[in-house]
């Protein structure tokens, strides 16, 4: 029996967290749920405790990369075979969870990414978002020779190989695209599956105009310099 951990990183998600937990329990009852609370200042931590899920808490806000990595470390040290990231803002449909882990269970790959754009999932994107994602798709294609329609998607699942890699190194901000490329460099296989995503259910997106620009520059720089780093 595979042990599965759903990692939900949260920072002030009191409006949506309960629904997300309920959705995961319904769609993937055999999985444990770990909420990693990244220094929320609202009642997010209390909601997680009321729901009786596993909880890890950062004493202060550290950002999404460090938060996910805390979850990866927990999964690795506690012997989980599969870890899944489901955001706490409700944009990832838990109904897609079984199909997200299927390629892992069948041993086809090490990292599965839920893509908004593989099928007509009815996800409405702004023009700028589409442009940004196109940009990152090309980046992934240039550096890996593989196609990824939605490399910025945080809705993903990985096996122990992926866990091991990401608990050793994981970018501290905007980690998604870099993680795909570094996984590919270490010989891990990734695959995309079509998933539905909602627009966020509450809260505000962490990405504004200026940070979008920083996102692109930072990731490109980080990946380019990474090429000159020796792999362990």
């Amino acid at each position: 029996m595979m042990r599965i951990l759903v990692i939900t990183p949260v920072f002030n998600e009191e409006e949506t967290l309960r629904g997300v937990i309920l959705g995961i329990r319904t769609s993937l009852p055999q999985a444990d749920i770990l909420v990693v609370n990244d220094g929320s200042t609202d009642s997010t931590g209390n909601i997680a405790r009321e729901e009786g899920v596993l909880i890890l808490e950062h004493p202060y806000n550290m950002g999404i990369g460090a938060t996910m990595q805390t979850g990866f470390l927990y999964a690795l040290r506690n012997g989980y075979d599969i870890a899944i990231q489901v955001d706490g803002d409700g944009q990832h449909h838990p109904e897609s969870l079984p199909s997200l882990i299927k390629p892992l269970l069948e041993g086809h790959c090490n990292l599965v990414i839920g893509s908004r754009y593989l099928s007509d999932g009815g996800f409405k994107s702004t023009f700028l978002r589409k442009l940004g994602i196109k940009f990152f798709s090309s980046v992934v294609w240039i550096f890996t020779g593989k196609r990824a329609t939605d490399p910025t998607s945080g809705f993903r699942a990985m096996d122990r190989k992926g866990l091991k890699l990401f608990s050793e190194e994981y970018p501290s901000d905007y980690p998604e695209v870099e993680a795909v490329i570094s996984a590919n460099r270490k010989g891990l296989h990734f695959q995309e599956i079509p998933t539905m995503m909602r627009d966020r259910q509450g809260g505000t997106s962490s990405i504004g105009m200026l940070s979008a620009l920083y996102y692109m520059v930072k990731v490109t720089l980080s990946i380019s310099i990474g090429l000159f780093r020796r792999t362990k």
């Binding site: 990693v36 596993l54 909880i55 890890l56 808490e57 950062h58 004493p59 202060y60 550290m62 460090a66 990595q69 805390t70 470390l73 927990y74 040290r77 501290s172």
Partner: peptide, 17 residues
């Protein structure tokens, strides 16, 4: 220091649990 701080935060979170 930021890198060390990150590792420390993560270990604190894991130990607290």
């Amino acid at each position: 220091l930021a890198e060390k701080n990150k590792v420390l935060t993560q270990e604190v979170a894991l130990l607290k649990k």
